[in-house]
Structures are given as structure tokens and as C-alpha cells.
């Protein structure tokens, strides 16, 4: 076990735990943001640099501070380590820098992006970004690609987190998609636009932190905050069958994995569940899904409304407006 202190809060964690995992164990507002790290994908993290923190004391044994800011997702804790996240102006400034870098070539087309509302880059920009851009050159652009009938690749929005490639490598058995070219000309693509032909390929949509990989069948159907996430399950031979349905009225617009509070899939789901079971009768509904408190969809208060509906049979006007 190792004791680590992050912004004054201490916790004992098993050896080998990363600073980011320790921060998530502590919880609260003090967890570094992560755009590329994904706990369920091996070797993920380290690329985006948003989770950088300052190690002001290395360990009890060697109390020297680390010379540079470190990615908390790829740095393991040492006993007695002291870390500064939000309490370090240096960290906050560097993080603002990273956010700016991530945004300079992002199209900022949130008004027409299906990911808007559940986009991690949106959240990150809101929390750590500047109101004005200093970048006044043309932004990088790519043609949109359909990866088979279900997945849309909108490379212009990609922030190169590598998560989808790791999904392709680690949970599907014949990777046909990867990182091409280099530097700021890098792009995610499939080999000569081949279809990703695998039962679990749809999970690339769930791991994508932005709107680069989206569900083609849900395209422009609804803003995410107008849909109701419901936990549901079915008997599935390929996966656990535990999913979140995104409903509008009686219609199932989209099926995704269930995401935890860090936005990560709890379990991978198969393409049959995701793309082919779009009827409400395909599913056993468990109830409303608790969603990420950061996301705009949680502001919709539909749960309260639903509860009121159930209690009084009639929603109250002020609840609908989101007032307390």
C-alpha cells in the first residue's frame, strides 16, 4: 500500500495505482480531466496531456519533487507522494495550454455535432478553456468517411486519443483501423477505407471522447439532451446485454454501453445489441440511467419529472423549467 496526498487529501492505495486512479478514488471535484486515458484499455493514456499534475514530493524515501509536470494517468504513486492538481497555478496554466492545443484544429461545430452534450472536449473547454481563440489560421479538415453501415468517422473532430485504435487492437480480433501519417497530418483511418468487420467494433463510438466516431443510425436524430437514457438488458449470446437505451418518446434512437461517472463503458457491448435492437420490445427496461454529472443531459431533470409524473400523474411546470 502507498499513501498519496493530492491537493491536501490523502488516501491509501494499492501499489501500482496511478495518480489519476488515486484521485478518482478520492473523488470530488479534484480529479484531473482525462481525454485519452481509459481504464479498460491497456496502455491507454499519456498522449493528450490534460491530466498533467505536479509531483511536489516524490515519496517519503526520495522526497525530491519531479522536475516536470507528469501525466497522472501514467505515473504510479509512491508511498508518501504529494501531488498538486487544482492547487497548482503551474498545472492549471499548462492544462489551459493543452486545452488550447486540442481546440486550435477542432472545428467547434458543436451545433451540428451529435456528440454535443456528452462531449468530453466540450466539458474540458468549458472548465479549462479560454473564451477567445488566439489561433487565426485555417483549421485542419478531412473528408468524412463511413466505416461500414453503422459508424461515421469525422476525422476533423478527432483529438487523437488513440482509444479507438486500442479498442480495435484489444477487444476485436482483426484490427483494420489505425493511425496514419504523422504529426498534425495524422489521421485515424481504416486500411483503404475497409469496413471494420467485427462484432464489437461499435465500441469505438463509446470510447471516442469527441464526435469523431458516431453512430450513423442516430445521425441528426435528436440532441442528446432531449433523449432519455434508460438502463435496459436483454439475453445476448455475444455480450452481457446490459446497455443504455436513448429514447425519444417511445422510439429507441440509440443504444450504447452503460457509462460510469468517468464516462467509461462499464462493459463492452456487441454490435447486435447496439445497432440491431432498436425496438423497445427488444429490451427489459430497468429504469432511468444516472448520467455523468458534468454533462448537460443531467440538467434536464427528467428523473425528477419522471418521479413527479409517477407520484402525481402530472409534471409540475417549475420542474420542467429546471428550477428548484
Amino acid at each position: 500500500m502507498a499513501k498519496v496526498t493530492i491537493d491536501g487529501q490523502s488516501i491509501e492505495v494499492p501499489d501500482g495505482t496511478t495518480i489519476l486512479q488515486a484521485a478518482r478514488m478520492i473523488g470530488g471535484d479534484n480529479v484531473p480531466p482525462a481525454m485519452c486515458y481509459y481504464s479498460k484499455l491497456k496502455t491507454s493514456g499519456g498522449y493528450c496531456r490534460t491530466c498533467i499534475v505536479k509531483v511536489s514530493k516524490g515519496s517519503d524515501k526520495d522526497p525530491r519533487p519531479m522536475p516536470k509536470l507528469v501525466p497522472s494517468c501514467r505515473t504510479t504513486v509512491m508511498d508518501g507522494m504529494e501531488v498538486q492538481n487544482n492547487t497548482s497555478p503551474e498545472v492549471l496554466e499548462a492544462r489551459r495550454g493543452v486545452v488550447e492545443f486540442l481546440l486550435i484544429n477542432h472545428p467547434l461545430d458543436c451545433p451540428i455535432c451529435d456528440q454535443a452534450g456528452e462531449c468530453h472536449l466540450q466539458d474540458l473547454g468549458y472548465e479549462n478553456g479560454a473564451a477567445k481563440t488566439r489561433y487565426d489560421f485555417p483549421r485542419r479538415k478531412f473528408e468524412m468517411i463511413d466505416i461500414g453501415p453503422y459508424i461515421k468517422l469525422h476525422m476533423t473532430r478527432c483529438i487523437m486519443c488513440f482509444r479507438c485504435i486500442k479498442v480495435a487492437d484489444q477487444i476485436t480480433d482483426n484490427r483494420s483501423q489505425g493511425m496514419l501519417f504523422r504529426g498534425d497530418a495524422s489521421e485515424i483511418s481504416t486500411y483503404i477505407e475497409k469496413v471494420i468487420d467485427n462484432d464489437f467494433s461499435g465500441n469505438v463510438i463509446d470510447v471516442c471522447p469527441v464526435g469523431a466516431l458516431t453512430d450513423r443510425m442516430n445521425r441528426f436524430k435528436s440532441r442528446v439532451w432531449f433523449t432519455k437514457p434508460m438502463d435496459a438488458h436483454r439475453d445476448c449470446k455475444k455480450c452481457s446485454g446490459k446497455v443504455t437505451l436513448w429514447e425519444k418518446g417511445e422510439e429507441v434512437l440509440r443504444v450504447t454501453s452503460r457509462k460510469d461517472k468517468w464516462g467509461e463503458a462499464e462493459e463492452w457491448i456487441c454490435n447486435e445489441c447496439r445497432f440491431e435492437k432498436k425496438h423497445i420490445n427488444d429490451w427489459v427496461i430497468e429504469g432511468p440511467r444516472q448520467v455523468d454529472p458534468h454533462s448537460v443531459i443531467s440538467l434536464n431533470h427528467y428523473q425528477n419529472v419522471l418521479k413527479l409524473k409517477l407520484e402525481s400523474g402530472k409534471p409540475q411546470k417549475q420542474m420542467l423549467l429546471g428550477k428548484k
Binding site: N174, R175, S176, M179, L180, F181, R182, Y191, I192
Partner: peptide
């Protein structure tokens, strides 16, 4: 090896 592994390298 997989074609994508070749393409990734060739384009780098």
C-alpha cells in the same frame, strides 16, 4: 502481419 500495420508504417 495485418495490412493496416503496413499502412501505418508506410505513411509515417
Amino acid at each position: 502481419i495485418k495490412p493496416i500495420e503496413v499502412f501505418e508504417v508506410a505513411s509515417f
